Simulated scan of single mutants.
Amino acid sequence: MEQLISAIERYHPSFRTDIEGCSPEEIDRLQSLVGIHLPDVHVDFLRVMGRRMGGLSLYDGDFRIETLIKRYTEEGAAHDSPLIIAIAHYGPYGRSRETFERPIELEFEEDEGQYVLVAYPPGEREHEFPEAIRILDLVNPTLYEALFAKAYLQYRWARFKHQRTLFFNAHSPKEIEQAAAIVEQFGFERHPESSITVRYFDQRDATAIISPNPGEPVRLSLAAHDAAELFRLANALTKRLPTPTTSA
């Protein structure tokens, strides 16, 4: 988590003052209620953000440890179910004033050999989580990936006024990597927090994100300060990326 905080501080220097962790005693209390060993990734999260997570909440979820302790105290633990790490609240819809809550879970993915975030509520509202990273509604990221994605869009992507989305063909990780190399040829530096799920590219006056689009062409999202420069960049990339390349 220290690596994550340092990465976020690159774009939001005061981020460390926006978060607050919980005590070892609180973590022990939660673990006793859950009845199983808490995954290291969740323990690390609780240590640094268990009380306050600096505006990085996902899926309108309440990730505070006191909420989890209250939930497990009242309802107990289902030992054959994934670990609940937050409670999401959503609604009301239409004329109904009824609100709902659903768990956000951390589940071990056998094929990947790691814990992934599983959320059942509706995805992020569009104005909170732009098209660039809506991949998180389509695949289950790790908690680390989800937190960095939210932070990048909140503290970096949002600084750019003009945005453009391109799509290109890629049928394997190797082909996606070849497209990433093309993006780097246009002066972008790949961010070290990039993953197989989402790749981030940055330069002084623009940013780019490559994210898979299951069953569809791969998405390349671009953002820049200058509209003319974004237009030039998008056109140049369109000529280099595997066809078909369409844009929005």
Rank of each mutant, 00 (worst) to 15 (best):
L230C: 13
G50P: 08
D28E: 14
E98L: 14
D111T: 15
L166H: 13
Y11V: 04
L106A: 01
T207M: 08
H42Q: 06
E145Y: 07
S247C: 09
W157K: 08
P82Y: 11
R95A: 09
R156D: 13
E128Y: 04
D137Q: 08
I135K: 02
R240Q: 15
P13V: 00
Y152F: 15
L136S: 04
L143G: 06
V198T: 05
E66S: 13
Q154T: 15
A146S: 15
F108R: 09
T243Q: 09
D226R: 12
D205R: 12
E20M: 10
P92F: 02
G76V: 07
D60Q: 07
H89T: 13
L30N: 00
A149S: 15
E107M: 07
E216W: 06
V139H: 07
H225G: 14
G94D: 03
S23F: 13
Q178P: 02
E126A: 04
R232S: 11
L138C: 07
A248P: 03
H171A: 11
E66T: 14
G50S: 07
L33F: 03
P141G: 02
E66M: 10
M49F: 02
G76T: 04
T73F: 08
E98P: 09
H42P: 04
G113T: 08
I84D: 12
H89W: 03
P192I: 05
L136W: 00
V198W: 00
R159H: 13
S32N: 04
H89V: 08
L220G: 05
A86H: 10
I5N: 05
I8P: 00
A227Q: 15
E229A: 13
P122W: 00
G113H: 02
I27Y: 11
E20H: 09
T67P: 10
L33T: 04
E145R: 09
R51T: 02
S96P: 02
V34A: 01
L68C: 00
P212W: 11
P39F: 01
A7H: 01
T245R: 11
V218F: 02
F45E: 01
S6F: 03
V218H: 03
E98A: 12
V198A: 01
P217I: 02
D226E: 15
I19A: 07
G123L: 07
D111P: 10
L241R: 10
A146H: 13
E131N: 03
E20S: 10
V116N: 02
P13M: 00
N213P: 02
R95V: 06
R97D: 05
T73C: 09
I182L: 14
Q31S: 02
P130N: 00
P103Q: 11
H89A: 00
S211H: 14
H162N: 14
H89M: 08
R71N: 08
A7S: 15
E229S: 12
Y144R: 15
H162R: 13
E75D: 09
G21P: 09
M49R: 01
Y200S: 04
G113K: 08
V198Y: 01
G55P: 03
Y11G: 01
A180F: 06
